[in-house]
Write a protein that binds this DNA or RNA. Structure first.
Lengths: 415, 415
DNA sequence: ACATTTTCGTTGTCTGTACCTACAATTGCC
DNA sequence: GGCAATTGTAGGTACAGACAACGAAAATGT
């Protein structure tokens, strides 16, 4: 039978490639391995990329010159042979600011090349909604002290936000649970960060679930998996999709709004204006409603209260978890049919509740997913838990550096 | 704001690239343009690929040597300047056999490089189900006389089948409407074609809707669109998805089974065993049922009867079309939320019925799709109509040649 | 303890690929 | 008819990676 090859398309874009692109691509491949896989011997780099030893030597030298890598120590391998020096990403060589704006909490972190978290702060808030300006003020206050030591190496800013976000310019169209409408978050962040970041620093904003998927794909439960689904609820319900190892974005980056697929024409009203959305049947509100808890108090505490009652054996809460898990499984089954993923990662709310949801979820999933697709999918909890979107925001910010290591202005080495 | 670049991932695979890959890629880019865009002047090739004039000259020369292209005539352009010779794909330089196996009809075609249909036959059948062996016998009998004149240039075989198909080896897991279970279609086709095709000819089998999407993307309503959805029903309902210009396959190629997403927990039973699948609410059976027509007679004629009655003004049929269009629109809305496509192409049954479905479809779509996603999507009828899967099968078969023109064994030039 | 084996970095050379420059060819316009 | 614009052609150049040969470093075996 035919080797299906890398896909069923010729070149996707039809553009030609010039010689210097080759260098960029290979430099990218090496830096990506250092960043994602971790410290590697030069021999391992050669093996993984398929490039010649001499080429690897040359590429590594360039990365060291750029300040993105360093050699230290040698690999201890079993068996005979000359040891190969270990190359590692230089965390101080390039850093990014990762930001997360959820309904219940904000977080910011400075992440170094290689994925090391150099600084991090997270704050919860009880007020369910604030103006975008206030939120940005708060997050910038949070970030300021962390940023100061790394301002010389900062290459980019990435932000995860719980709302419909246009990738091209970080415009948040609608974030029902933050009560935001038409917020130019990218611009506002740039203004608020002002001189705290070097002029011209890219600021990338994307949806929370999309970045959760990215985070789990790169550094969590989805490592090495090329087709995965990340399903997460906080107040809203969203999915992030990785296909062929790349995020599924759609035309403008709005893809993955699984929370608003129809699952029940007679279902409950949803914040989006429609009725019977998956979010309205399997999301936090639905769970709290079924459990008889107030639905106007969102977030971590409300779920904590629910968990307490569940552990106390309250029947109504058990039934609510059962029903919600079933609905979650049914919707997941629909998505499994649509995407045929290898792994489904459950994050956010579902990660916390998984012990209670797992059985009905599997039942709902089995009732819906086609046998063949079901057989090859694994449902796993998030490994990064509530950090997933933040990690993803960091990866988003690092993306341009990784695709073109030499193209990004070499950061000023702080004296 | 940051240039989002080609994506948010480093290199997707992390492999390095050697110099000769560059040549393969550029050769592929040129041949792909000749095949998909059509005859082009060398100057146009240079402009489209971004490659240098001298490089294009070299690549074109190689393609001519390989027998895949020819130069003839010159471009007549307005304005001054030396005219540029026209390069065109050589239809006889490489050919494929495209096969389509639907519930109501079979088709086979020999397609030449550039997309010209060199021979084609289609037959309808009334018997709704036959054994796989019988069907394959029939299709091979159909293909034999067409194949003979082109056996020397045949590089691949592609087949579209209305069922759950594993891409890697063309194994049809389940084709409810053909009444097939576990049919190794790829192998059976190879055996049945026997010496009619050169030994070692790749045989690729894929799902009908996936190939419909491919066909429309390459040569139909989705030309130049990088994110599109193809939704089609014959007896079953399926979707084909193109994302970033590439087919969305999932782990094993089962992706796109939109017909079996849940749309109504109280809905009708579906052939897959579940209840309330989109297919069971918006597919052919649902439409016939609502119209009061027998649901055991499938295919072209049943729909013809329905159309006749609709044109005669039968109220029940109108109501059935209204309800089905609404359901179709609702499901499409869910998919628009999930994929954020630029274009949705309606094929198969829906293409025929579109005049009757359009209004309720738009209503259902608007009721469900998020405003931002809705604003940027266009719903269009299939341009290839019932030929879409056949065209897609041809494109599937050409894919490996297009990705590596020099790697495919140069076909024997028949004397 | 020493030779052997294995692995790996280094160096210099070679090949493949695309680009660049200069020039010739062809056309349209004045 | 001359000039400008566009493009093909030919030869030289630049660049990147492969390859082969060599030496270095460590484990293994006697």
């Amino acid at each position: 039978m035919a080797a299906t090859g890398p896909g069923t398309a010729p070149t996707a874009d039809g553009r030609g490639t010039r010689g210097t692109e080759l260098r960029r691509h290979n430099l990218s491949a090496v830096l990506a391995q250092l960043h994602l896989v971790g410290p590697s011997s030069r021999s391992q780099l050669a093996g993984h990329t398929g490039l010649n030893r001499s080429t690897i030597a040359d590429l590594v030298e360039e990365l060291i010159t750029l300040g993105f890598a360093e050699e230290s120590g040698v690999a201890t391998r079993p068996g005979p042979g000359r040891p190969s020096p270990i190359v590692r990403a230089c965390p101080q060589g390039a850093t990014v600011l990762a930001i997360e704006l959820e309904v219940g909490s904000f977080a910011a972190a400075v992440i170094g090349l290689g994925g090391s978290v150099l600084a991090e702060r997270r704050i919860s808030r009880s007020v369910p909604a604030s103006s975008a300006a206030d939120v940005i003020d708060e997050i910038v206050r949070l970030a300021k002290p962390m940023l100061a030591p790394h301002v010389g190496s900062l290459v980019s800013v990435g932000a995860a936000v719980a709302g419909l976000t246009r990738r091209t310019d970080g415009y948040v169209h609608f974030a029902p649970n933050l009560a935001w409408h038409d917020v130019a978050l990218g611009e506002l962040l740039r203004d608020a960060l002002g001189t705290m970041v070097p002029a011209g620093t890219p600021i990338e904003v994307a949806n929370e679930a999309d970045l959760g998927a990215l985070g789990e794909h790169r550094r969590g439960a989805g490592r090495g998996v090329s087709d995965l689904l990340f399903i997460s609820a906080e107040v809203g319900l969203g999915a992030g999709i990785i296909s062929r190892g790349l995020p599924l974005l759609g035309t403008a980056g709005y893809a993955g709004e699984a929370g608003h697929m129809l699952v029940d024409p007679l279902g409950h009203p949803c914040a989006c204006g429609a009725r019977g959305c998956w979010e309205a049947e399997a999301g936090e509100n639905a769970l709290l409603r079924r459990a008889g808890l107030p639905t106007d108090v969102h977030g971590y505490d409300a779920v904590g209260e629910l968990l307490t009652r569940a552990e106390q054996g309250e029947a109504r809460v058990h039934a609510a978890l059962e029903e919600t898990g079933w609905r979650l499984g049914q919707g997941t089954g629909s998505l499994v049919n649509l995407f045929n993923p290898e792994v489904v990662v459950l994050g956010g709310l579902y990660h916390r509740l998984l012990p209670w949801l797992e059985r009905p979820l599997q039942a709902g999933l089995s009732s819906r997913a086609l046998q063949v697709a079901l057989e090859m999918v694994t449902i796993v909890p998030s490994e990064l838990s509530e950090q997933a979107p933040l990690v993803g925001a960091g990866e988003l910010a690092f993306a341009s550096l990784l695709t073109d290591p030499a193209g990004v202005t070499p950061p000023v080495v702080s004296a």
